[in-house]
Structures are given as C-alpha cells and as structure tokens.
C-alpha cells in the first residue's frame, strides 16, 4: 500500500513550526518592545531596562496586589475546595450534581456578567466594595470549580469508600480519616488545582475589571490601563513582567501533569 506518506511527513513538521511561530512571534515582539529604547526606531536604537524600571515605579502596587489576591484565593479554595471535591467524589445525589453544575457557571458565564452580579448584590456595602476582598470573592467564584473538580477527579480514581471503611475499622473517626487518608491521596489533585487557581487568579481580567477601584488594581487591570494611556514600550515591559511571573507557574503545572500521569494511584490500590 503506497500512500503519500513522505509528502505528509514533510508537511506536518513544517506546519507545526509555522503554527508555533505564529503564536510565539507576537509574544517575542512584545517582549522585545519592552526592552527596546525606541520601538518605532527598532532594536538598533538599543536595548534597555528603563521601561521595566518605569513599570516598577508606576505599577508596583498592582504586582503586589495580584500576588496577594492570588495567594488569598488559593487559601480560600484550599479550605473550601478540597472538602467540596471530596463531597463531589463521594456523593452521587441529585443535589450534589446540581451543585457541581452551578459551581461551573461562573466559568461559563462572561466574567463581566459575574462581576456585575457581584456589584449589584454587594455594591452597597461600601467598605467591602472598596476593599481588595471584593476582588477576592470574584476570583474564588471563578477558580473554585478548578480546585474542587481537580480534587474530585483524583479521589474518584481510587476506591475511596473502601479505603475509608478500612480506616474506620482501624478506629479512625471522620476527621482522622479526612486528614490521613483523603487529603494525602488527593495530593496530586490539590497540587494541580493549586497551580491552576494561582495562574487563573493572576491572569483574571474580566471579573476583576468590574470589581476594581482606582485603589484596588490587579496586574491585568493595570496592563489594560497602561496599554490605553502609556507609551507602547511601557505596556510591553509590563507584559514582560507578567510573563516572568506566570511562566514558572505554567511550567510547574506541565511538570506536575507529566508526573501525575506516571504515578497515578491505581484503582486496586
């Protein structure tokens, strides 16, 4: 059977490389713009860290606020999402399934709509509205399903009910079982969920844009601001700063996913 295999074998890698270039070149240009003296003149105008410095001076606060919101979001999703993931994995009641659907709603809905709903509901509580905690609420709504479902998926892949019965037969009460059996065996899901939550929170723009005040700007909101009102080099330098923060997280996530598929606990464990 002679197929046109050689031709395809040649086209496929070329196509892949072209696609990658298509995706990477704009990012590379943006990064380059952030460290170029004058983008309109080009690289020959010289490379500089001046714009990064300007970003630091102008938008330092947004970087810290983004980190603060991301870590707080992580803390809340850990405390709420891990038990929630456990419930999702253990129960097959109609109500729990409905809850699972409801949980995903903020992901499916445009962020602006979620943001507006929050403003309508809580906008009148002035101190709350003006504080960064308001943004935290939006981020938790958006990221919670990622933690809960990630935990639920890992817990569903092991025979958890029997493990818990075994632990109970050995004298462990519910709390002991939760912390010695459930949480350790959910570790992979918790870790994957945690990285996802932090990454999503750092990059979240839609909901945050509706919820922020001039005093509570996160990095992505600051980015929009700089694109609109600063020179191109500063906006690009700002993008560079964001990438420096987010790329290590993405790499960690990839690494974890690759590791997870190798050592997934078996059902018969």
């Amino acid at each position: 059977m002679r197929m046109k295999r050689p031709a395809f074998a040649l086209i496929a890698p070329v196509l892949t490389v072209l696609t990658c270039l298509f995706l990477i070149v704009p990012i590379g240009m943006s990064i380059l713009a952030g460290v170029t003296e004058n983008y309109f003149v080009g690289v020959r105008s010289g490379l500089t860290l001046r714009w990064v410095g300007e970003v630091w001076g102008l938008y330092r606060e947004t970087i810290f606020l983004s980190l603060q919101v991301a870590l707080a979001t992580l803390a809340v999703t850990l405390v709420v999402g891990v038990p929630l993931g456990y419930v999702l994995a253990r129960s097959d009641s109609r109500w729990v399934r409905a809850l699972e659907e409801a949980l995903v709603l903020p992901v499916a809905m445009p962020g602006l709509a979620t943001g507006l709903a929050l403003v309508l509901a809580f906008g009148t509580f002035r101190d709350f509205r003006a504080s960064w905690v308001f943004i935290l609420v939006g981020h938790v709504l958006f990221t919670l399903p990622f933690m809960a479902r990630s935990v639920a998926a890992v817990l569903s892949s092991i025979n958890l009910p029997v493990l818990e019965e075994a632990a109970a037969s050995l004298g462990a009460g519910f709390v002991q079982r939760f912390f010695t059996i459930v949480v350790p065996n959910a570790k992979g899901g918790v870790l994957a969920g945690a990285l996802m939550v932090v990454t999503l929170s750092m990059g979240e723009f839609n909901i945050t844009w509706m919820l922020h005040t001039p005093l509570t700007k996160t990095l992505p909101v600051g980015l929009a601001d700089s694109y609109a009102s600063m020179r191109l080099e500063i906006g690009s330098a700002y993008t560079l700063v964001f990438l420096l923060m987010i790329v290590p997280l993405l790499i960690a996530m990839q690494w974890l996913a690759a590791r997870g598929t190798r050592t997934l606990p078996s059902k018969r464990g």
Binding site: I158, L163, A167, L170, I181, K187, P265
Partner: peptide, 13 residues
C-alpha cells in the same frame, strides 16, 4: 473489628 476486603483497601499513600 478487623476488616479484610476483597479489593485489599490498602492505603496507597
């Protein structure tokens, strides 16, 4: 009670 299960139910962690 000591219990032994068909699926062993050993703690993988």
């Amino acid at each position: 009670v000591g219990m032994v299960f068909q699926s062993y139910a050993l703690f993988p962690n």
